[in-house]
Structure formats: structure tokens, C-alpha cells
Design a protein around this nucleic acid. Sequence first.
RNA 1: GCACCCAUAGCUCAGCUGGAUAGAGUGUCGCCCUCCGAAGGCGAAGGUCGUAGGUUCGAAUCCUACUGGGUGCGCCA
Length: 572
Amino acid sequence: MNLFAQMRSRVLDALSQMISDGVLPDGLDFANVAVEPPRDAAHGDMATNAAMVLAKPAKMKPRDIAEALAERLGLLAEVESATVAGPGFLNLRLDPSIWADLVQTIVTTPEYGRSDMGQGGKVNVEFVSANPTGPMHVGHTRGAVFGDALASLLSYAGYEVTREYYINDGGAQVDVLARSVYLRYLQAHGQEVEFPEGTYPGDYLIGVGEALKEKVGDTYLDKGEQFWLADVREFATEAMMEMIRGDLAALGVTMDRFFSEKSLYGTGRIEGALAELDGKDLIYRGTLEPPKGKLPEDWEPREQTLFRSTAYGDDVDRPVQKSDGAWTYFAPDIAYHWDKIERGYDQLIDVLGADHGGYVKRMKAAVAALSDERVPLDVKLCQLVKLYKNGEPFKMSKRAGTFVTLRDVVEEVGADVTRFVMLTRKNDAPLDFDFAKAIEQSKDNPVYYVQYAHARCRSVLRKAEAAGITAASPVLTDAAEIDVVRALAEWPRVVEIAARTHEPHRIAFYLYDLAQSFHALWNRGNDRPELRFWQEGDAGSTAAKILLPQAVSVVISAGLGILGVTPVEEMR
RNA sequence: GCACCCAUAGCUCAGCUGGAUAGAGUGUCGCCCUCCGAAGGCGAAGGUCGUAGGUUCGAAUCCUACUGGGUGCGCCA
């Protein structure tokens, strides 16, 4: 039930009618005809740009079309008035009964706002994909929250979504991890150890070293690397993934699948993917030009195996093999995306940190090539999170012990607040995260503001329930009441726009707006008792009032659900 | 040097497929609890939408150039 979509189809009907009546010429494309909320509510409840969009192709004046359209729309039962304004806008004022009906619909329709836009299309959202070498830090947190909310949003919009984590367990960094754990293992055996450059000195590996000792005893003592490296690598990686799973769980994120990079090695998967590209004549041996400007000190021309990504819009072709013959990071990633394509996804989404921006074009090129441009890949880059404490920049340093992990943040401010704050910014805009402000329970803090609105709704509803009052058809008269319903009417639109643009932050902003109009109405009850939801000693009036807060709570709860934030029953 | 992202109120940011007088929060100033939850509300003030062109009936939005900031640029992942 989307009032705007409904009205749009009324408008299109009217336009078709105008064509058959000879008012408009044949063969017009209505694709750009939109029905939207007007910028200013004083203009009306809805506005359509139909006349302006069609003026040129119909070779008519916008106002002429608008007037003819207004005449027809004015006849509809749900339209109270249709007036032409400005350059050719058609403003519609709806019959007041529409609003009451909508409120009724919201509380009786399961999941009002859920959309079938996705048509069950399969979408894979890959996110977090942090190296399994340590705990997740704040930077990962944003990607985790964003990816999870995006996945929920798409699912709400009718897509079949898989949440996936790509474990980078194939490169040199897991060897470093293994060596670091080995040192902790020696330490667990009472040896003095030092952590040389190129190892991870973090305390979080102490327990892993002890666990390794527990498992293998003294088997690896005084042994060469070749003897223990592979085993320790696996043991350590598994321990890290265990930790990361726990970190994600603390945030409320559950992956559907963890995909191991290492599983691509030695199984022919990488070779297979590259053969696929080679079959399209996109792999060749060649030498890259050095990058212009600053030349790397040790630059020397080398022949490498290259992927012809320029055939799909990249700036230069990209190496898939290092000079020593080992794969670059890109090669298994090609194989990974090939795997995703083969699993039948209609759409791929990668959520990456902004520092991977340079990687986007080649990955898109690879996916386009491998899927014959059938499967779109959207790469969402999350900008950095800048930490503050009471307005003061909070510098992170592993050495100074001020390294901030995801756990630190969640323990300090809670998962709900963390998630909401991370989503109050567009993904490609940098985010300031202030610890002190995040836990402050005030209007400074949008989370509490939205939750407060929900709590107020629930509070009234509990009171009504306790009094045995059940909701009856609402009577909506005041402008503040209509404002709230107007906001509710936009919910399905917001879901679709947010899903289409892959921008979950729109949900957060919408909820804030909805909460705002609700709080405004609530406070109006201070001066005008007849606007209160609870009408003391008048069960009949109360019954007619409480459907609106019920509808608000339905939408807030659905919206917060998408963001993964708890819609609380009461503030404490 | 090249590529990608960003530039909107003092500050932090929204702004839908190009649409009407560009919106919130915060900060500043004034007001509102005998009142359903003041963790709230109302009002005032605050803008050459980085600059210059272009496309269009119409541009914060699209195109080009420039300025300023971020990120990245073979053998890190």
C-alpha cells in the first residue's frame, strides 16, 4: 500500500484517457511522470510533474496539459482538489478520509512498507571481510553496520539476500599471524620473546598462544618454521575468525556465509577463473608503464600476466601474477567473484573501506567480463570514522594502548547507538563518532530521539490496553495529526528509494523526521488537551485517537528493524 | 602526473528520476511542565549550494574546465 504509487497509476490512467480523447498525442512515454510529496505541505498533499515532463514530447504548453489533467483528477473520489501551480505543477489535495484510511491500513497490514520491488532477485552483499589477523576495529564497524543494514533493507524491498564475508586467509599476512602466535606459544612455555618488526605484538594473541600450547604441548618447541607454520596458521586463523564472529555478534551481525580465500588455492578455482577470462582474450603477458609522477624507487620494467581490464573501462590493465609467479591479491578475488556469479546472483554488492577506491574499476571490469555484463557489481565505499571524546580528537595508537576495537565501542555505547550513529551519515561521507555524545541521552542523540518517540507510542498503547480500550476508526482533524500521517505515507517510498540507491542512511533520516512530527504532535497536547491520545475518562475518544500512535510505532519499529536497532518499549 | 570520492547556514550534515521560496541538527537569542513521559516542543536569526562556463522551460542535482580537501596508483591485502 503506497499512496504515491497508487496516485501515480491514477495519473497515468487519466493521461491515457486524455490520449484516447485526443487531448494528448499518441506514443508518449510516461516513465518520468512522478507523483511526489510537494516541497511545501502548503501546496497540497501530493504533486505531479506530468505536465512539465510531457510538454515537450506532446508539443504543448505545460499549463494546458496540467489544466486538462487537473480537470480529470478532480473527479476522483480521493482527490479533494487539483490545482495548477508554478511552471506546470499539479498539486493534489486529498480527501481527508484518505488519511484515516491509511492509518487503518498501516495497523492492519502486516509489514506496511515492505516492497516486492526486488521481485525475489538474488543479491550477494559482501562486507566486513577484515583480515583474520586481529580484532575488528572501529573502521570495520562502519562497514559491518552499513553492510548489514543494506542487506536488511534489500531483503525488506523484496530481494533474496546473502550476507557474505570473504576471509583473506591466503596471503602473507596470515604467515605473519602464525609467527606471532608461535612467539606467544613460546612465551606460554615460559620463554623470553621479543616481537621483531613484521610481527603482531598485540595482547590478543596471548590466549591463542596458550591455547596452542594446550593443544600441541611442546611439539613445536625448538622446531623450524617449516615444521609448524602451516598448522599454526590454521590454528591461529580459526582462533581469529572465532573472535571476529564474536565481535560481529556483539554488533548484532550474522553472516550467512564465510568464504575462505585459501579455499581458492590449489583447487584450480583461480586458474579456472583466469582461463575463463583468457577464453575471452582478456589475459596476456605484457609490461606495464610506470605510474607517472612519483616513480617508485625500485621500479624496473617487468613482464607480467595481465588482465585486460581496460576493455571494460579501467585505466590500465592489471597484473594477476607477481614477478615471482605468485598470484596477486586480485587473482583470487577474480576467482571469488566468479564463484559468486556462478552461484547465480543477479546482483553483487561489495562494501569496502574508502582506501580500496582504486580497486573498484578493475573489480567491476572483472565481473563485467566474467558475467558478460549480465551481473552488475556495485561497490560501496565507506569513508573513515574519526573518533572524538567530548569534541577532542581521539587518536588511536596500538603502542599507546588507545587502539579502539569494535568491542570497545560496543561495550562503551551499546550496539543500538553504535549502529544508528554509523548510519546517520552517507556511506561516502566521513563520520565523526564522539563517544561522550553517543552515550548522552539527549536530543543531541538521534537514536534516543527516535526511540523516545516509539516509547511514547507504546506508553499510550499500554495505558489504553490496561484500560481495556481497543482502537476504533481514527478521526484526524488537526494539521499536526495530518503531518504525522503524511510522514507515514512516505514510508513505502523511502524504502524503495533507499533500496534502489543502496543507501540505508535514508531510513535513519526518515525515522528522525517521523519522530520529529510525532513529538510535535505530542507536545501540542500540552496546550490543547483535545489533541492528546489519552482522553481522560472518555474511552470512545481515546479509542479513536490511539490508532495513530499505533501506526507510528509500527513504522518506527519496522524502520529500526532494518537498521538493526531495538525499538524500545520504554526509556530507562 | 592519472583515477575515484567530497565541497550546501558559524559547526556537523540531509536534499528523491533535474522541479516550486534549498532543509534538519547543533550553536546563539526568546518562550513552553498544575498538562497523555520536558530524554520533548514552539519561535527568531543564519545561505553568491567552492569558482567560471554550458545543457534545459527549469540545475545544489547533468556536462566541461578550474580551485581546495581526502583516498589510491606493479611484486600489501
